[in-house]
Design a protein around this nucleic acid. Structure first.
Lengths: 352, 352
DNA sequence: CGGACTTTTCAAATCGTTTTGGAAATGGTG
DNA sequence: CACCATTTCCAAAACGATTTGAAAAGTCCG
């Protein structure tokens, strides 16, 4: 193992100078820098990370803990995010240390990692409206960034989130503008922030529209095909006066269930029923591949990985918090699963 | 941050003694040990991992790299294994550092982690018959354990594997004993060791049986429901003389496809067609929950996590390699998806 | 009591970096 | 040439543990 000392001896320089030259400090002349860099390369010098970490007090490790299990089975999106994070963090010369909590104790891995001083910070995914992990990290004053948010109005932590209010609002407004008056919203679980915000957006759009004829129903549930199928089937089985002509869905997997229910009812999309879904572009489900292609609010999960990593690094470098709280807009992409409300078509025919 | 030095000063002891007392070395009297332990606890002393690592030269980190992507989509079983590994490694006071390779370069993450001296060893999953990662780690002489094996007869590395020859043999023998003579084996990819071994077992069972009337066909493919469906449908569409009366499957997900194909053909399990599958107990698919319950060779993936972690630790502690190469037997569990061959039933009737 | 062990403790070196506080070298100016 | 301000470099002190070699203390026995 070749060390800084060996380089310094070979060059008759002090270790300090070598260290400086290698780390790009300004107080070293150009020629000695080149000389040092060259011999370092020749000797195939690799700085000992542990020594570096001990000296700088930074471990260069980021903690990522498997979020509390949602009943059974893991969230596949988590792993999508994890791989994206790993890629970006690698570019920043940070490493990801992964832990899975034992069932029942969500913050034990955090406590462990903090106690061991093994990581410089954490990335928290799948936050709840009220989240023990966030509370713990705030309490301990450990740097962390959240993918999403919790319930607090003015979060005292760094986060990256999409504008879920707008997601709910835009989807709903699109449908209202198309003449739909009975809209059913199959939302996510009721204990997460994005569901809460989307619901707010949904209700605001209805309220803004003014027409008291417009009405909506919101359902909450675990994002799954069967949930979408079950709830959509129930809604479509209502008497015609109450039956929705359009669905808003919080995920493409739910939308797949809705689509199946519509088909089973012998109805067509978008002629009889419109669907607009949020689409975070999971690897296994392509909204464009739906038949008909799905109208969506589009915001790929993997696009969050880069920003999350960058935010955390900013945090570690002591940047100001207000630059590290980022909310991005989702993009409304109108495809073939939305069309004018059938009832409106009739009224149009009548008024024309 | 409370250090060993502070404890030593408070107790008027030397840091060496404190270190020894805390780490359970014998050359320290019982009373001072108790004393040290007590004050350490009172002061809420937590050893600085980085310092410890620098002094001992061991990082306490284990590298786990996402295996080369199988076309698109990630292998969900990998994450199952990863969480299991994390749990066991945590008990051994080791941490898992995760990396995702950028597409196309499978060993770059290994090279990086090795170069940085960031990990003490690796766990390699989803090995191929010929695997660049294994070659690299052998070359660099880095400790690692493989989940499965590569093509070499006498691997020069630690591994944990199941007896895949027996998996193929036992499943096939069961069907032969039930009178089946035309057996179709829907195996995994052809470039992995377990497929190779199971195929050997399959062929050996046929050969051992002797009856030249018995014949088998082996297919290779990516483990998926659609692969099972497609191949089973093709096989069942053959003229009766060549049509298999039984399937061997390399995974429950394939078996699900076979089952669907059988149904689509208007046939019944096990009356018309028998199925025996290998079952590594993925979280999302329960072989017992099949209708009919699946006859399987049973060996849960997650049961491999503990041994893998233990083997790696043994390796790091310099244990002998031959104790670190473990092959376990899978358990044959006969349930409702296997029954006597329909043609045999006829012959029985004739001979009786 | 004194020598020979054994047990217990300690001071100091080590791990491989970074960082601090000066000192030496350099260069420009009057 | 003396003087001062920059550059450029260095010796030594961290960082917080482990480990080595030796000294001090305790124990035993003749």
């Amino acid at each position: 193992m070749v060390t800084i000392k060996q380089i310094s001896e070979k060059l008759r320089l002090s270790p300090a100078t070598v260290s400086r030259a290698l780390n790009g400090y300004p107080e070293v002349s150009a020629k000695t820098r080149i000389l040092v860099e060259e011999t370092a390369r020749n000797l195939n010098y690799r700085p000992n990370q542990l020594a570096k970490k001990l000296a700088t007090g930074r471990s260069g490790m980021i903690g990522l803990v498997l979020p509390p299990s949602n009943d059974k089975g893991f969230d596949p999106t988590f792993f999508d995010v994890m791989t994206g994070l790993s890629r970006r963090l690698t570019e920043l010369d940070l490493d990801l240390v992964f832990h899975a909590p034992v069932f029942g104790d969500d913050i034990e891995p955090f406590r462990r990692l903090v106690g061991k001083q093994a990581v410089d910070g954490f990335i928290v995914t799948n936050p709840r409206l009220s989240d023990a992990r966030i509370d713990f990290l705030l309490e301990e004053d450990i740097p962390f960034v959240v993918h999403g948010r919790n319930a607090s109005e003015q979060p005292g932590f760094a986060y990256f989130d999409i504008d879920n209010f707008r997601v709910g609002y835009d989807a709903t407004k699109l449908l209202l503008d198309l003449g739909h008056r009975k809209i059913c919203f199959l939302n996510g679980p009721d204990d997460v922030h994005f569901s809460f915000e989307r619901k707010r957006g949904f209700e605001k759009a209805l309220a803004d529209h003014g027409s008291d004829a417009a009405s909506g129903a919101v359902r909450h549930g675990r994002m799954s095909e069967s949930y979408g199928y079950r709830e959509a089937l129930a809604a479509l089985s209502l008497p015609p006066a109450q039956r929705p002509t359009a669905f808003v869905s919080s995920s493409t997997i739910i939308a797949a269930g809705i689509l199946r229910a519509v088909r089973d009812k012998g109805l067509r999309v978008p002629d009889d029923v419109s669907i607009v879904s949020h689409d975070d572009a999971p690897p296994q489900l392509d909204a464009m591949g739906f038949d008909p292609a799905l109208t969506v609010t589009y915001s790929p999960l993997r696009d969050a990985c880069g920003p999350l990593a960058d935010i955390l690094q900013g945090l570690l470098n002591g940047e100001n918090l207000d630059k590290l709280q980022i909310t991005e807009e989702a993009e409304l992409i109108v495809r073939q699963s939305t069309g004018p409300s059938p009832s409106v078509d009739q009224s149009k025919g009548q008024t024309a």
